[in-house]
Design a protein around this nucleic acid. Structure first.
Length: 447
RNA sequence: GGCGGCGUUGCCAAGUGGUCUAAGGCGAAGGUCUGCAAAACCUUUAUUCGUCAGUUCGAAUCUGACCGCCGCCUCCA
């Protein structure tokens, strides 16, 4: 599986994050289904924008790329995106790229004009098959900037001759750097072979980027390039595409400063990957709110398991039923909104069971926990069940909380509700929530 | 101009020929529990799916027209 990654000239925005997150969920689901997924995401670390930025900031292009690819890895980690199998960089794969360009030139699909190598679009008959465009229609409506060197305005650069002061690599056509489209063809081929299963990317890459990849790869290898294309819808702001060029964007780190990764992921998972999504803080708030339900059930499960009472009733809960509904949803073109609905149905049903049956068998909680780990945690990534490290001081802390709970209980028994409420309120302000139940008082620490 | 997509409850959003008087989340209203909270549970919240016409025994789902919105055709996830 290959996905077009970022050009590392800036922090990525929350619209890019949507693509990365949805691709991550799809990848995690394929792994859930026991596919052995080789997940490749390229990093474009040499390109016009990077060069522009390096001139503006008066630092080498490689330093710009380093800074923003470091930032990229920080951000995806915070978004709970699993690391790819490979993150090939353009500058590490110049040999592969040059080899493919050579194959294209030798095969007559590309030509060299004074150190610039262009792909000859008209040499590839199926050009336009992915985007549904026809070559002649494109030409008639061409807004394409006409470069004099090109034989045809639709032709695109495989190798760009370097200008004075720009970074360059040596090639038989002279000093230059790779074009954007050829990177993906060369690097996907290197890691995934000449034909591979899934290629994903944003909607706007269909044309020309993915169209060009097909043209390059299929002309070079004479084999089908990709079996399935996956294109993600845009994130809009006020129904307008969020993009760097329009300037109407939030970076992922700006959004992460206000909202949890889980809420961001839930927000995206609640819409189908192909459609557009409007981004507003109200919707993030409502996702954050919805997450509470999931977290409360997790707390209930955790505290029941900590008590570890033997025996109890087996409620005959049908976990398979929910798991089947979950996989049915995702088997149907990765219908994540449906899958999320199944999770919430499960939460409701589990809560109902807990509310109705007094003394549940521990196995119920274990199975409920397993179900949520498999689905909501491992696939969707909207909640985490990972064992938290128990720190030394938190053990002491827990004992102190228990003492306060005892004092509060005494106060309650003496009908000194003012003191009882005061203790609860003060603990709340320390992010510790008390919850009175029939079996005593539980406490939860907020994250 | 060419190509593609979308329009479902107060908001978001699944559903693409009968199980739909339409899932799920948020919001709202009432109730149970509680000293009070919190959480949880129960009940209510679209006879209707942009508009009009058609196909069909049957349509949110198919066809046509119209209205509105968006994207791509130039770097863009």
């Amino acid at each position: 599986m290959y996905i077009c990654g970022p050009t590392v000239y800036d922090y990525f925005h929350i619209g890019n994050a949507r693509t990365f997150i949805m691709a991550d969920i799809i990848r995690r689901y394929l792994e859930y289904k026991n596919y052995n997924v080789t997940y490749v995401m390229n990093l474009t670390d040499i390109d016009d924008k990077i060069i522009k930025k390096s001139i503006e900031e008066k630092v080498p292009a490689s330093e710009v790329a380093k800074k923003y690819s470091d930032a990229f890895f920080e951000d995806i980690k915070r978004l709970k995106i699993k690391l790819a199998t490979f993150y090939p960089k353009a500058t590490d794969n110049i040999d592969e790229i040059l080899r493919m360009i050579k194959a294209l030139v030798d095969g007559g699909a590309a030509y060299n004009v004074d150190g610039n190598v262009f792909y000859n679009v008209s040499s590839f008959k199926p050009y336009g098959k992915l985007s549904g465009k026809k070559i002649d229609e494109l030409e008639s409506g061409a807004r394409v900037e006409v470069m004099e060197e090109k034989q045809d305005p639709l032709d695109f650069a495989l190798w760009k001759k370097s200008k004075e002061g720009e970074p360059f690599w040596k090639s038989e056509w002279g000093n230059g750097r790779p074009g954007w489209h050829i990177e993906c063809s060369a690097m996907s081929c290197k890691h995934l072979g000449e034909t591979f299963d899934i290629h994903a990317g944003g909607n706007d890459l269909i044309f020309p980027h993915h169209e060009n990849e097909i043209a390059q790869s299929e002309a070079a290898t004479k084999k089908p390039f990709v079996k399935y294309w996956l294109h993600f819808g845009f994130l809009n702001i006020n129904k307008e595409k969020m993009s760097k060029s329009l300037g109407n964007f939030f970076t992922a780190r700006e959004v992460l400063a206000k909202y949890s990764a889980e809420a961001i992921r839930l927000f995206f998972a609640q819409a189908h990957y192909r459609g557009p999504v409007d981004f507003t803080s109200e919707l993030l708030d409502s996702a954050e709110k919805g997450l509470e339900k999931l977290k409360n059930l997790r707390s209930a499960i955790d505290s029941a398991m900590n008590k570890n009472k033997p025996g109890g009733v087996d409620p005959g809960f049908n976990f398979q039923h929910f798991e089947k509904r979950f996989t049915d949803a995702l088997d149907d073109d990765f219908n994540t909104p449906q899958a999320v609905a199944v999770i919430f149905d499960f939460v409701k049903e589990a809560n109902r069971t807990i509310a109705e049956k007094e003394n549940l068998h521990l196995d119920f909680y274990i199975a409920a926990r397993d179900f949520l780990i498999k689905t909501a945690d491992n696939v969707l990534g909207i909640i985490s069940f990972k064992e938290k490290e128990v720190k030394q001081d938190s053990l002491l802390e827990n004992e102190l909380i228990k003492i306060l709970i005892d004092i509060r209980l005494k106060a309650k028994n003496e009908k000194n509700f003012q003191l009882a409420d005061d203790i609860r309120k003060k603990l709340e302000s320390l992010a510790i929530t008390l919850k009175d139940t029939k079996e005593g008082t539980d406490f939860f620490k907020r994250e």
